[in-house]
C-alpha cells in the first residue's frame, strides 16, 4: 500500500517565480548614462567649478548613505548606485559657483530627510534630490540664486529677463542658445538640449514612463501656449518656458522617480498633468520665477490619491 503513492519532491518558495531582469542597479546606470551629456555640457559651459559641485555632491550622498546603513545596522545599499544618481541630480539643481559647505549641507539633508530616515530607496515619499534643493533654497536664498552667484559670465538669465525686461526682450533670446545651455541657471537644469537627449534615451530604454513626461509637458506647455496665442505681446512662448528654469529636468528626471509617482497609466497621466499645471500656476501667478521643483514636491504628496485610479480587474463585472 505504501509503495503505491510515489514520493513527490515539492519545492516551496515565495513568489514571484519569474523575473524580467530589471534591477535598481541597471536603472541607476541608465539614469547616469542619460545624465552624462548634461553633465558634460555643464562642464563645457561652466568649467571646472561645475565638476567640483557634482563630484562633491555625489561623494557626500554616497558617504551619508553608507553611514546611515551602518548606523541602522543594515546591509549597505550604496552598490545600487541610487545615491550617486540622487547626488548628481541634486547637483544639477545648484549654481556652479555654490560654496562647498552649501553643497554638503544640502546633500546631507537630501539623503537624511529625503531618503534614509524613511528607510532607504523606495520608501521615500518625496523626490530625494528635491528635498536637498528645497532645504537650501529656503535657508540660503542668496547663495542659491545663480544670478547672484554667477557674476563672471556673459550668459543671461532668461527668467530674470522675462520678469524685469519684458516679453520682447525674452522672446529675442535665440532658442538655440537656450538649448545649448547658454543661460544663467542651475548648472545642470540649464543644459536643456542635453537633458532632452538624456530624457529621450530613458524613454526609449523604458526606464521612465511617457505618461508622466507627456503629462508634465502638456500640463505646463498648453496654458503657456494658450496665453501666448491670445495675447502674444504680453506672454512669452511655451518653448521659451520649456527651455528656461528647470521644467525639463523635473519632467524627465524628478517627476518620474518610481517611488514617488503613481503606479498605473491613468494615474500617471493625471499626476503629470497636475504637476505641469502646478508649474504653470507657480511660474505665472507666484512670486518664484521658476516653480517646477516645488510643483513636483507638492504633486508627489498627491500620488497616493492618483494611485486610487485603478484599472478594472479582469473578469469583474
Amino acid at each position: 500500500m505504501k509503495d503505491a503513492t510515489p514520493t513527490l519532491l515539492l519545492s516551496m518558495s515565495a513568489p514571484p517565480y519569474w523575473h524580467c531582469g530589471r534591477t535598481v542597479f541597471k536603472r541607476s546606470i541608465d539614469q547616469l548614462i542619460a545624465l552624462l551629456p548634461a553633465a558634460a555640457m555643464a562642464v563645457v559651459n561652466w568649467g571646472l567649478p561645475a565638476l567640483r559641485v557634482m563630484c562633491l555632491a555625489m561623494a557626500v550622498c554616497v558617504a551619508v548613505e553608507a553611514i546611515c546603513c551602518w548606523a541602522m545596522d543594515r546591509k549597505s545599499t550604496i552598490d545600487d548606485f541610487t545615491a550617486v544618481v540622487a547626488g548628481l541630480l541634486y547637483a544639477f539643481m545648484l549654481p556652479a559657483g555654490a560654496p562647498w559647505w552649501i553643497v554638503v549641507i544640502g546633500a546631507v539633508s537630501a539623503m537624511l530627510f529625503g531618503k534614509m530616515l524613511f528607510g532607504g530607496h523606495g520608501n521615500n515619499p518625496l523626490c530625494t534630490p528635491l528635498i536637498g534643493w528645497a532645504v537650501l533654497f529656503i535657508s540660503f536664498p542668496v547663495h542659491m540664486d545663480p544670478n547672484i552667484v554667477q557674476t563672471a559670465t556673459s550668459f543671461i538669465d532668461p527668467l530674470a529677463r522675462l520678469k524685469y525686461f519684458g516679453v520682447a526682450e525674452a522672446n529675442a533670446i535665440p532658442v538655440l542658445d537656450l538649448l545649448l545651455g547658454h543661460q544663467i541657471n542651475a548648472l545642470g537644469a540649464g543644459q536643456v538640449g542635453a537633458l532632452l537627449l538624456g530624457g529621450i534615451y530613458l524613454l526609449v530604454r523604458g526606464q521612465i514612463r511617457w505618461q508622466i513626461v507627456i503629462g508634465v509637458l502638456i500640463g505646463a506647455g498648453f496654458p503657456f501656449a494658450y496665453l501666448q496665442m491670445t495675447d502674444p505681446a504680453a506672454n512669452a512662448s511655451a518653448v521659451f518656458h520649456m527651455c528656461s528654469g528647470s521644467i525639463l529636468l523635473c519632467a524627465f528626471f524628478m517627476a518620474t522617480e518610481p517611488c514617488t509617482a503613481p503606479a498605473v497609466s491613468a494615474g500617471m497621466l493625471c499626476y503629470g498633468l497636475t504637476c505641469g499645471l502646478m508649474m504653470f500656476v507657480i511660474r505665472h501667478f507666484g512670486s518664484y520665477s521658476d516653480g517646477a521643483p516645488f510643483a513636483v514636491l507638492v504633486t508627489s504628496l498627491l500620488s497616493p490619491y492618483f494611485d486610487m485610479i485603478r484599472p478594472k480587474p479582469f473578469g469583474v463585472k
Partner: peptide, 11 residues
C-alpha cells in the same frame, strides 16, 4: 555665520 533659516520657518 550663515543662519540655517529653514529652522526658524515652519518646516
Amino acid at each position: 555665520f550663515e543662519p540655517f533659516q529653514i529652522m526658524v520657518k515652519a518646516p
